[in-house]
Design a protein around this nucleic acid. Sequence first.
DNA 1: ATGCTCGGATGGATCGTTCCAACGCGGGTG
DNA 2: CACCCGCGTTGGAACGATCCATCCGAGCAT
Lengths: 346, 346
Amino acid sequence: MTQTPRIPGRVPAAPPTLADVAERAGVSRQTVSNAVNNPELLRPDTLERVQRAISELGYLPNRAARNLRTRASHLIGLRINPVPEGTANATMDRFVHSLVETSSEAGYHVLLFPGDPLDPLSGYDDLLRATAVDAFVVTDTYLGNPQATWLEKRRAPFVAFGRPWDKPDAAHAWVDVDGAAGCDLATTHLLDKGHHRIAWIGWRKDSWIGEDRRSGWYRAMKSRGLSTTGLASRVEDTVHSGRSASAVLLDEAQPSAFVCASDTLAMGVLQTLAERGLAPGRDIAVVGFDDSQVAQVVHPGLTSVRQPLEQVAVEVVTALRGLLGHPPSPPRQVMLTPTLALRGSS
Amino acid sequence: MTQTPRIPGRVPAAPPTLADVAERAGVSRQTVSNAVNNPELLRPDTLERVQRAISELGYLPNRAARNLRTRASHLIGLRINPVPEGTANATMDRFVHSLVETSSEAGYHVLLFPGDPLDPLSGYDDLLRATAVDAFVVTDTYLGNPQATWLEKRRAPFVAFGRPWDKPDAAHAWVDVDGAAGCDLATTHLLDKGHHRIAWIGWRKDSWIGEDRRSGWYRAMKSRGLSTTGLASRVEDTVHSGRSASAVLLDEAQPSAFVCASDTLAMGVLQTLAERGLAPGRDIAVVGFDDSQVAQVVHPGLTSVRQPLEQVAVEVVTALRGLLGHPPSPPRQVMLTPTLALRGSS
DNA sequence: ATGCTCGGATGGATCGTTCCAACGCGGGTG
DNA sequence: CACCCGCGTTGGAACGATCCATCCGAGCAT
């Protein structure tokens, strides 16, 4: 009498349960469960019989029941924040794609939830208390990250994409891309092309990421013994800012190349060049950051530092598996190096 | 003895259950459940007592248990497909943001799963059989949609973003944006600006969406009694195609404006103009489609047809609530009208 | 023949919630 | 006064899976 009577033609047809499979295979429920989760415990002939019943019925374990019993949802929570209009950056969207792909290979699905931009913690708490997700991937660590501290205190498993800028020795798991190395790479590329006066256009000083990227430009210049005086500018991340900053720099410092903290700023530089009849790549070289779609389609192509987001996703998922494993492994901290997507602008 | 002994200091702390709340409030479990789901059934004083206990303990119903009992997950499955590099389109990513936002207001979360581009059905079946999601949002209907037919046969609730091109009278729920109206809008805008020879660059004839958008351009031209002969071109959706198509059209048909089926193609047009020293907006007008980030940051700004994705998300969620309601309401079919984001190129 | 071991299979309990039938109780009716 | 009604509340069962202790039987040593 474990089998509920099914009204014929009931819609949608209720999926088969463990008990259905067990009855068909002539074994107990537990044996079916073992066939699914610990096949090595069964005798080969029993296993085969059960597996045939499973595939004949098209059985798949009910997620809710399994989640309830095992206290795991196999879901990873990811908070997505509104994208500002007018910037070129779609890093997060690209990352989401990679993360979905990678985590699905590890048996996890990605659950998206919206966040109130004013409250960095909103959303996390509810999902945690409802045990709706096993872990989080935290992405917005650029302004300090109360989330990380808070999640650590709640002992909730999470991996951050982005290092803990405000406390570099924090013990939680994180994966990040070395922005300084990226800008070093970009600058060195330009130096190798024969440029000596390479300008920097970056973000305001209170941006950790911005300062990190800037340091890469700085150290590449210094490693060749070149002066950086008057060659740097720090502005808002808008096309307009990039445009006016580059105009000023061209007038006052005569650079032959620009390295920018973002493709958005680089687009501003391209506008200034167009205005002055200068050809990007031939007269003046420009390098952006993030390898956005804009960099790919603009003429003549914008050379740009590309974050290895597929790798980031892989590392994030590896870290998650570690945290959720039995026993959990210690938090991993991984730093990846970006590459340079070469195009016509350099 | 319903209360499991909790090892003190156990990590992470197990969240409180219904039974915990019931004990604290001095009522039965069912009463707490009612307080959460049907507050109107309780006497006001009981309700208040229970609610206080709930907030003191920070109780939230366990998702897995609730899902198991109610046979609903409050999750919406969305399959995401790989984005081709080198195109400007991020419509889907923008839509995902809106969908997450809107569905969360309706009490739903979005579950992302990857799809094998070669198999339009992969992924759906597993989630369905595991009762992991309540419904799907299907987005890739541009090449016919076996998913829709298949899901209908499985009697799985779903809403399509994109009309059923291959069978226009299909009965399932869908929401779409009127691409023809968008291109009509764009073309009429150019006509009102005094243009008479307006060229079309679109996709190959086997794209339903492409033909739909083209028809908008065509009907706007015809409504003013203008000839379209020699003014249309159908190519691949790449910058390069847009560039060469526009070059040919300029040489052979002398248009004063271009309407394109995508921002990617429009970028190609802008390249041709730049090559020939023609100023977009002043010498030749260009309009794209999708209001991508590229349109927003390129100089001097690309006028583009903008899909009301926030509205699409709202309609999709409304349709879903209808399908999942008790009793379910009939499938809604909604057509929305895009707007025109005016910028310097026109 | 008896006892012991051990791989393989089993039934019952359990996770935390909601559905269901029933129950106590105060008030109105015959 | 017995009866019934309906509101508010209750305990037990159920959802479908996994964990746990137990059991059965074949193989081997005593």
